[in-house]
C-alpha cells in the first residue's frame, strides 16, 4: 500500500515531505496533551501495535487476504496527535529497515496515511459520535465509519497528488474512478476490522479508548453506610 520511489516527481515528493514535517512538528506538541508528558515508551508500544496489526492477514476469499492500515484505528485509540506520531514512526521504520515504501516517498506516505488518514478518520468519528446516542456502543460504529472514509480520503489525496506530480500522463477521471472504487472495497474491510478491534477494547478497557473518554461517567466507588473511611 506504500507509495514507492518514482511515482511522484521530485518536486511533489519534496512538497509532501515539507507538509509531513510540519504535521510532525505540530503532533509532537499536540501529543503532550494526549499522553502524559514524556511518555515515549507508550507511544512506542502503540506504534509497535499498529505495525503488528498491519502484519496480520485477514483472509478474504480464494486464498487472498487483506490487512489493516490502522490510521483511523490509531486515532480512535490514542488520539489524532499521537496517532500521527505512531504512523510516522511505523512508516519510517518500514522505509528504513524493511524497504517498504520509497525513501523519497516517505513524506508522501506520512502525508497520506499519517495525516490525511488519521485526521479524516478522527473527524468522521467525532462528527458521527456527536449525532449518535451518547453510549459506549456507538464508538465502534463511529470508528468503522472513520475507517472507511479515512481510506477513501487517502486514495483521493493520492489521486490529487498524482494529477499534480504524477510521472505518467493519465486521464485523471480514469484514475479517480479506479482508485476510489478499489479503495472503497478496501475501506469496507478497514471499517469492519476497525469496528471489531475498537469494540473489543471498548468492552474490556474503555478507559484506554481516547474518543470514549468523554462518554464514560466518572467511576464512583460505593461505600456502605456505617463504614468509616
Amino acid at each position: 500500500m506504500h507509495v514507492p520511489d518514482g511515482f511522484l516527481d521530485a518536486t511533489t515528493s519534496v512538497a509532501t515531505a515539507v507538509v509531513a514535517a510540519g504535521a510532525i512538528a505540530a503532533s509532537l506538541r499536540g501529543s503532550r496533551r494526549e499522553l502524559d508528558d514524556r511518555s515515549a515508551p507508550l507511544a512506542g508500544l502503540v506504534a509497535t501495535f499498529i505495525f503488528a496489526a498491519q502484519m496480520v492477514n485477514f483472509p478474504v476469499a480464494a486464498g487472498t487476504s487483506g490487512h489493516l492500515l490502522g490510521g483511523a484505528l490509531a486515532a480512535v485509540l490514542v488520539g489524532p496527535w499521537t496517532a500521527t506520531l505512531c504512523l510516522t514512526v511505523v512508516l519510517g521504520v518500514q522505509a528504513l529497515l524493511f524497504a517498504d515504501g520509497g525513501l523519497t516517498a516517505l513524506g508522501t506516505n506520512i502525508t497520506l496515511m499519517g495525516v490525511v488518514g488519521v485526521w479524516v478518520g478522527y473527524a468522521v468519528v467525532r462528527l458521527s459520535l456527536s449525532v449518535m446516542p451518547r453510549r459506549l456502543s456507538s464508538v465502534p460504529v463511529a470508528a468503522g465509519l472513520g475507517g472507511l472514509l479515512s481510506v477513501v480520503a487517502a486514495a483521493l489525496t493520492f489521486t490529487g497528488l498524482f494529477a499534480v506530480g504524477g510521472t505518467v500522463p493519465v486521464q485523471v477521471d480514469t484514475l479517480l474512478t479506479g482508485m476510489v472504487s478499489v479503495h472503497t472495497l478496501i475501506g469496507l474491510g478497514e471499517a469492519v476490522l476497525t469496528a471489531l478491534v475498537v469494540g473489543t477494547v471498548v468492552g474490556v478497557r474503555p478507559d484506554l479508548v481516547h474518543v470514549a473518554r468523554s462518554l464514560r461517567s466518572p467511576e464512583r466507588l460505593p461505600t456502605r453506610p456505617g463504614v468509616h473511611s
Partner: peptide, 28 residues
C-alpha cells in the same frame, strides 16, 4: 479461512492493543 473468522482475529488484536498499552505504561 474466510471473513467469518474476522471477529476472532480482531478480538485478538484488541487484546494485543491492551497488552501493548499496559506494557508501555509499565516500561514508562
Amino acid at each position: 479461512r474466510s471473513p467469518r473468522h474476522w471477529p476472532v482475529l480482531a478480538r485478538s488484536l484488541g487484546v494485543l492493543f491492551v497488552r501493548s498499552y499496559e506494557r508501555g505504561e509499565r516500561v514508562h
